[in-house]
Simulated scan of single mutants.
Amino acid sequence: MSSRSLNGRMAGHRRTYSAPLNNNGEDIEQPSLDLKRMPLRSPIDFSTDIFELLSLRSERPVVKEVFTGSYQGQPAIRVATWNLQRLTKEKICNLGVLEVVCRTILENGFSFIAIQEVCSKDVLEKICCELNHSSLRRVREWTGAKGEWRWQVSEEPVGDMSDGAEYAAFIYNVQHGLQLLSASILSIQENNGSSFSTKPYLGYFKVNDFEFVVINLHINGSKLAQSTGTSNLSDSGEDEEGSPSHMVSQLAPLVAALRDKLVTERNIILLGDFSMSPEDIAFNILRETSYTNIVPADTMTGTTKESDYYDNIWLNPCIATLYTE
C-alpha cells in the first residue's frame, strides 16, 4: 500500500478541523468523534480481484476438437488418472487450483478420472459442483458441454501420508453414459503378514450395456525402489531388498489378490501412480499376466523430474481390444 491514504493525505497525518461560523458569527458545534461507537470496517479482500486478473492473463491450451462421448460414430469414454498431491480442502478452495483442475478436465473431455492423494472426503464435491454449476470465469467461458459430474470417495483411508490419511476417489460424467455400480477397498496381505502399502480402490462401472472394473492404485515408491537391472543375493542366498526379484515379490500379492477378487471379471483397468517407469522389471509380473500399459514410457506425466513417468494405465486383454488412441 502507498504511504498516502486514498484521499491524498499522508497516512497518520493529524487533521485539525477549522470551525466554520454560522450567519450570526457563532461557532457551529462539531460532532464528537467517538471511536467506540463507530462501526468497524471489514478488511478489504483483494484475493478475488487478484485471481481474476491472473486468470485473464493465463492462457489456456487451444482445443482443436472437443470430445463429446463418441469416437468414429461409436459410444466411447475417456479414462484418466491424476495424482493431485495432497488434495486438501484448503488447496481446492484456492480459486486458481480449482480453475486449472476444472479446465483441464473439460479441455481433455475426460469421462472418468481416478484420483490419488485425497486428504479430505469432501474435496471432490467442490470440483464436481464447479463443473456442474460454474462460477469461475474461465469455467463459465467453456463453450462445450460440461456434463453432469458425480464423485465417489473411499469410505476409509487407503493409506497414510506424512501429514495424514490418504483417500482414493473417482469422479465421472454421467452424461457420457457412466454409471457407478459399487465401490470397495481391497485389502492385501503380503507374504510376511503385513498389509500392502496403499490399498487398491475398486470401482465397478457400467456404460450402456458394457461393464468394467477400475482399480485405483497408488503404489508407495519406498516399497518399490528403482530397479538395478541385476539380481543381488545376500550371503544367505536370499534376495536383497531393492533387487528386481524383491520388487517383483512386492507386486505379486497385488496381482494375486486381484486375480482372486476379480476372477469373474473380464474387463479390468489398473491405473494410478505406480512410482516407477512402466519399463521397470518390477512390472514384468503384469506383463506376464497379459496386462498392457497404454501410456508410453517416455511420456511425461508429472511436474517434477522424480515423478515424470510414474502415472500409467494398464489394461487386461479383453478391454485392450476396445482401446483406441
Rank of each mutant, 00 (worst) to 15 (best):
S243Q: 00
R4W: 09
W149S: 00
Y323P: 05
P244K: 05
A183N: 15
K199M: 15
H13Y: 05
L124K: 00
E130I: 02
G144D: 09
F283Q: 11
R4C: 08
I215W: 04
Y310H: 07
N108D: 04
G237F: 04
A282N: 13
D163Q: 04
V263L: 13
L233W: 00
H246R: 03
S120E: 15
K126L: 07
E90D: 09
T68P: 01
I105S: 02
T304R: 09
D260R: 12
I127Q: 00
L254C: 10
L40H: 09
V153G: 00
T143A: 15
K89C: 04
A225Y: 05
K223H: 06
L56P: 04
I127A: 02
L178R: 00
L53T: 08
S18C: 05
K121P: 01
N316I: 08
R86K: 13
E238M: 05
G12W: 03
N267A: 12
A183L: 02
Y323K: 12
T104D: 14
S58L: 06
S231G: 03
S42Q: 13
N24G: 04
Q74S: 12
L262V: 09
V295W: 10
E190K: 15
S290I: 06
M276I: 08
E155G: 11
S307F: 03
N83I: 03
T228C: 12
G221C: 11
S227E: 10
N216R: 07
F46W: 12
P317E: 14
L131R: 02
L106M: 08
V139H: 04
L124I: 01
Q152R: 06
T48F: 06
E238I: 02
I219H: 02
L131P: 02
D209H: 07
P244S: 06
L251F: 14
E65V: 10
D122A: 06
S275G: 11
L254S: 10
F110Q: 08
T198A: 04
K146C: 00
I281F: 06
C93E: 10
N293A: 14
F112I: 14
Q226C: 15
E52L: 14
M276R: 15
N22K: 02
E190A: 06
L53Q: 08
M38L: 13
E52M: 11
N83Q: 05
A183T: 14
V66M: 06
K261V: 04
W149E: 00
E211L: 04
R103M: 07
P278Y: 09
L21Y: 01
L258N: 05
A168F: 01
E241A: 12
A252L: 11
L35K: 10
E125F: 02
A252F: 09
T16D: 06
G69A: 03
N83W: 00
R138H: 07
I127K: 00
T88M: 04
R138V: 03
N83C: 05
I171G: 00
I313T: 07
D45H: 09
R4E: 12
H176Q: 01
N108Q: 12
V213Q: 03
T299C: 10
H218Q: 13
L262R: 08
S243L: 01
L21E: 09
S120A: 07
F196K: 07
A165Q: 11
V263A: 13
I268V: 13
A252Y: 08
G221K: 12
K91V: 11
I268R: 05
A165T: 04
K199Y: 07
P43K: 10
S70Y: 01
V263I: 12
L87K: 10
